[in-house]
Write a protein that binds this DNA or RNA. Structure first.
Length: 278
DNA sequence: AGCTCAACCTGGCTGC
DNA sequence: TGCAGCCAGGTTGAGC
């Protein structure tokens, strides 16, 4: 379930266990992910220390001695800390061993990624996959004062629907399909409105909504982090109650009008036809 | 440059 | 019960 909040909750969950630890072994069970997992990881990584674990958009960045391990969870990826004695399960794709602990990437649909960015290739932010990403929703550049400007400027002359504009992550990163519908509802903006037609006040409401929705989701996930080391079950993330997502036909929690589902850019969008205006 | 859409892959649910 | 068909949290890259 990885949108930004899930990735952040994952980061918070694994970082305390791994930062400062040295990789003892790497096993690639099935390296045919979004891109092939680099074949030399099992040779190169052992002995290297995890200096820090940060996040850029939906990518996790593990800073190692000679470069960065980039991990993306795709649609169905989860990362868990387990006792290394636990046996591999179906759909476990890569396991990083740290002595008595394992970091396991479990990813049924294989849309995730494990990549390597060598230090000699320059700063990790310059990585082709990271470079084009929009600003971080919780960065100073997307503050309560500046967020509206970011959205307003990036959306000028764009004919694409605001739903797709926001989801694309070119202006601000981290808003996936669920929280995109939720953010637009929170901001009272109709998902089919052309991005370029957004008013300044609408951009301000949307920027605030994005931060609020993502923050709430992280907080909800964070509450269950204590179970993160357990070997069974989910990573401990429980989705916040949604106002519109996956609620087709159900009454709007504000005005009781039935929630509508449409498809935009091959993805489902949910909205309230009464509360959300063009 | 921006827009649309196919593609990657697997499991689970719906409906006949 | 069995099975075909559809849907799912993401993102790139091709074609226009």
């Amino acid at each position: 379930m990885p949108e930004l909040p899930e990735v952040e909750v994952t980061r918070l969950g694994i970082a305390p266990h791994l930062e400062g630890q040295k990789v003892s072994a790497v096993k690639v069970v099935d390296g045919r992910l979004r891109w092939p997992v680099p074949r030399n990881l099992p040779r190169m990584l052992p002995g290297q220390k995890v200096h820090s674990i940060t996040r850029r958009g939906k990518y996790l960045l593990l800073q190692m001695d000679t470069g960065y391990l980039l991990i993306h969870l795709g649609m169905t990826g989860t990362l868990r800390i387990l006792p290394s004695t636990d046996s591999l399960k179906p759909h476990d794709r890569v396991t990083f061993e740290f002595g008595k602990l394992s970091l396991r990437l479990h990813d049924p649909r294989k849309f995730g990624a494990v990549l390597w960015h060598a230090n000699k290739k320059g700063p990790v932010e310059k990585n082709t996959l990271l470079q084009k990403l929009g600003v971080e929703p919780f960065s100073p550049e997307f503050s309560a004062q500046l967020g509206a400007d970011v959205l307003y400027k990036a959306s000028r002359k764009r004919s694409v629907a605001v739903k797709q504009f926001l989801l694309a992550g070119q202006a601000v990163v981290g808003v996936g399909n669920i929280y995109c519908s939720e953010s637009l509802f929170e901001a009272g903006i109709h998902p089919t409105k052309a991005a370029g037609k957004l008013s300044k006040p609408q951009c301000a409401r949307l920027a605030n909504a994005v931060r609020l929705i993502l923050k709430k989701a992280i907080a909800a996930g964070g509450s269950s982090l204590k179970d993160f080391v357990n070997s069974e079950g989910d990573p401990g993330y429980f989705m916040v109650q949604t106002k519109v997502y996956d609620r087709k036909g159900l009454p709007c929690k504000v005005c009781k009008a039935p929630i509508v589902q449409i498809v935009q850019g091959q993805r489902s969008t949910y909205f309230c036809p009464q509360c959300q205006k063009r």
